[in-house]
Design a protein around this nucleic acid. Sequence first.
DNA 1: AACCAGCGCGACGAGCGACT
DNA 2: AGTCGCTCGTCGCGCTGGTT
Length: 234
Amino acid sequence: MNYTELLSEALFIRRYNRFFADVETASGGLLTLHCPNTGSMKNCLVPRSPCWYSRSDKPSRKLPGTLEQVTTTFGNRAGINTALPNKIVREALSENLIPALSDYPLIRSEVPYGDENSRIDLLLTGSQRDCYVEVKSVTLDMGSGLALFPDAVTSRGCKHLRELMAMAAAGQRAVLFYCVQLSDVDRVSIASDIDPEYAQTLTKAVALGVEVMAWQCLLTPSGVSLLRPLELIV
DNA sequence: AACCAGCGCGACGAGCGACT
DNA sequence: AGTCGCTCGTCGCGCTGGTT
């Protein structure tokens, strides 16, 4: 997934509510950007650390740009745009870069499904069984190569797990795909101390046949793409 | 019938005020 | 004290209405 133009570098100053972040540009000016991540962004908000943003001149937008990448507490680069993982994974699927999900000719995004008014991120069809793929953005850097999910209590995350379990029980493939937008990471685990209910539900989901996979992204100023599968400690 | 533009809505989730 | 519902900005989907 390529940005429309190269990202600009700045210094992260503060995120003063979940939609707005102030940065200091190279020329020393203060710029308010849209923050495309409404989560807690734990370990991703380090004052005066390097960050990168995209510019937009769309007349419909109120802010001049979007915060895309930041530096974590441990000095790693994190992609914080929660809209990107779906695009990145879809792109990788259409290029057959994910061996475990390579036999599906048809890919659709945001398809309504389940009993709780949900939409599945990606529905893969055209093979023997349909494959429901829920993509999660992982940005919680714990240092020493470890990334965790979630970074805050996520009732929607539990809801998505329940929907995936229902799909698996109905005989379809159900996949939870952790898209890890972090540099210098080699394994992913579940933050059971942050959201015990999510951890329990995930254990149940795995036992019921929901497949879980985690891939690291390559983050550059020109774009983000899937890089390699990561060890998953569930 | 086919296409396009515009509009409305849902999703995202932390925080806050109103209400039970 | 606990729960509910609304709000923020952006994106993408799906519906509607207009034009060709």
